[in-house]
Design a protein around this nucleic acid. Structure first.
Length: 317
DNA sequence: CGCGTTTGACCTGCGC
DNA sequence: GCGCAGGTCAAACGCG
């Protein structure tokens, strides 16, 4: 698979424009003619520093290229592994497991039909988050991964052709002192029920969008059984209105300023989905790159210097 | 008083 | 048919 075809991961740091960003570091061509000896000495010194800078530039460029190649390889490996996992899962999916899943799907479908989404907003998406043991194992693995990496995961699975409501799961670090089971996602919710479930000591809260009945979206919030410090919010349906804060939007796409990870273990997605996944992956990569770069004090210092250099140059012109 | 939350009752689907 | 579990309803309650 040629990742580069769909993923532009080259780190365009605009290194070629360093001469504009750091005009004082490069040899100045417009030099007032003084004595020929002085001029020669100055030119030699400046040539030396210029050649050093060029060497540095070449080194950074080659490093950039190497990093790009490494990233492409990693990405390629990820897709290879994902396809391998899909193959294994489809092979392991015996008729027995199909029978196990059948009633769940049927039950889900029934509840989805009762949602009666307006404006044709429903689309074939579903997720059984806890009933399937294999899936539950994946769920645990993912949560462990997320805990290790201090990130929030967003899953939006698009599978069965006959299911209707969009179901997505969001993992949010819970405030330990907060027992209200609230997930701030920019929308207003009205709680209509709470229930203690069998597989989890903490209760599950049921919310409807405050725009109901015109908005069919519901969400369930429950603390994770494995880690009570994580809230698991399950969203059903799609909002048919803008959120109260346009910058916040749907929690499945934006959860505060936290980084999101893809569901690395989720299989069975269609080819049509891959384009979306790639786009999401690209966004996530960009976000992670930006995140890691902004954490690098050297980078931020260099960036600040570049910006200030640019501003200085503009103010001069 | 209005609105949102709480909570026990009720409904529905499923397995035995 | 019965029991269980998840989901929903709606009366009671609390708060501003």
């Amino acid at each position: 698979m040629d990742c580069s075809s769909f993923l532009d991961i080259s780190l365009n740091l605009n290194t070629n424009s360093l001469d504009r960003s750091f005009p004082e570091k490069l040899p100045k061509k417009e030099v007032k003619v003084s004595t020929s000896a002085d001029l020669k000495r100055k030119w030699m010194v400046k040539d030396e520093s210029a050649s050093e800078l060029r060497e540095e530039l070449n080194r950074v460029n080659s490093e950039n290229k190497k990093l790009t190649e490494t990233l492409a390889t990693v990405y390629e490996n990820y897709y290879a592994l994902q396809h391998h996992l899909e193959k294994l899962q489809s092979r392991r999916q015996s008729p027995e497991t199909d029978q196990l899943e059948q009633p769940l799907k049927r039950r889900k479908q029934d509840s989805d039909e009762s949602l009666s989404l307006p404006n044709g907003l429903s689309s074939g998406i579903n997720e059984n988050s806890s009933s399937n043991e294999a899936h539950h194992h994946h769920h645990q693995q993912q949560q462990q991964y997320e805990q290790k990496n201090q990130v929030i995961s967003c899953k939006r699975s698009v599978t069965d052709s006959f299911n209707k409501a969009q179901v997505s799961t969001v993992y949010v670090p819970a405030v330990s002192s907060d027992t209200s089971l609230t997930v701030k996602d920019g929308y207003q919710w009205r709680k209509y029920g709470q229930k203690v479930t069998r597989d989890n000591p903490s209760p599950r809260a049921y919310f409807r969008c405050s725009f109901a009945p015109s908005c069919p979206v519901k969400k369930k919030v429950q603390r994770s059984a494995e880690d009570p410090s994580i809230l698991v919010a399950t969203y059903e349906g799609t909002h048919n209105h803008l959120g109260p804060n346009a910058s916040e939007g749907d929690a499945t796409s934006q959860v505060g300023s936290r980084t999101m990870t893809l569901d690395m273990v989720h299989g069975g997605h269609s080819l049509a989905l891959e384009k979306n996944e790639r786009e999401t992956m690209q966004e996530v990569l960009v976000q992670q790159m930006a995140s890691s770069l902004t954490k690098d004090s050297k980078f931020t210092a260099a960036l600040a210097a570049a910006i200030s250099g640019r501003l200085m140059e503009q103010s001069r012109t």
